[in-house]
Every structure is written in C-alpha cells, then in structure tokens.
C-alpha cells in the first residue's frame, strides 16, 4: 500500500479567541484483524492506533483508535485559537511508524 497521505483542512485566518473547525483524513486501510485471506488465515491487524493534534506544542485533541474506526480515518474537531501558530498532527501506526502534518494559522 502507498504511504498514508494526510489531508487537512484548517482555516488560514481566525479572530482571537475564535473556535475553528479542523478536518483531518489520512489514507490508511485500517486492517481490522478480523478478516481472513483466501486461504482462511487471519490477516494481521494493522491500524492507526493514535492521533494527536497540538497547537504551538500544547495538546488540543487526541484520539485512541480501535479497529472499529473506518478505513481512511476521518476526524472533525474544534480548537480555540488565541494567537498565531502552527497546528501539528501526528498519526501512529501499529507498526510504529508515524505520519505527520503541519498547518499554520494567523490570528488577526
């Protein structure tokens, strides 16, 4: 499978103290470990098990995922922005690899 590719939607500008909506999606098959291949052997579990979002290093939102989260995990959540800065998003795979993305926001 291709390397998981994150996609993020964050407004580029916000007013001070505004609560902005953030949408994230990462391409990942989220193999549940419940399925079996053609020979009847279980396909090993391989999911994103943790997602975190920080703003200027401060935790904003995080999520622990179980196999019951759909393929290409999608999250929509909010953040209160008091100053300009950078959102950092991190996804942790079962095999230990991490995928990350950054997004800047300017407070007017």
């Amino acid at each position: 499978m291709a390397t998981p590719k994150p996609r993020i939607k964050v407004p580029s500008k916000a007013a001070k103290g505004e609560v902005v909506t953030i949408k994230t999606l990462i391409s990942h098959e989220m193999e549940s470990g419940q399925r079996k291949d053609k020979e009847g052997k279980p396909i090993p579990r391989k999911i994103i098990n943790k997602f975190t979002c920080t703003f200027n290093g401060q935790p904003v939102f995080s999520c622990d995922l179980a196999p019951a989260v759909s393929a290409n995990p999608y999250f929509e959540f909010t953040a209160k922005v008091m100053e300009s800065g950078t959102f950092e998003f991190t996804w942790v795979d079962d095999d230990g690899s991490t995928y990350s993305a950054k997004n800047k926001i300017t407070v007017q």
Binding site: V60, F61, S62, C63, D64, F77, K80
Partner: peptide, 10 residues
C-alpha cells in the same frame, strides 16, 4: 474510539 479534549479544544 476515545477522544481526549483539553481547554484548547474550545
């Protein structure tokens, strides 16, 4: 899934 929020979540 388990979501964790902080006051920064708004």
């Amino acid at each position: 899934a388990t979501f964790h929020f902080t006051p920064l979540s708004g």
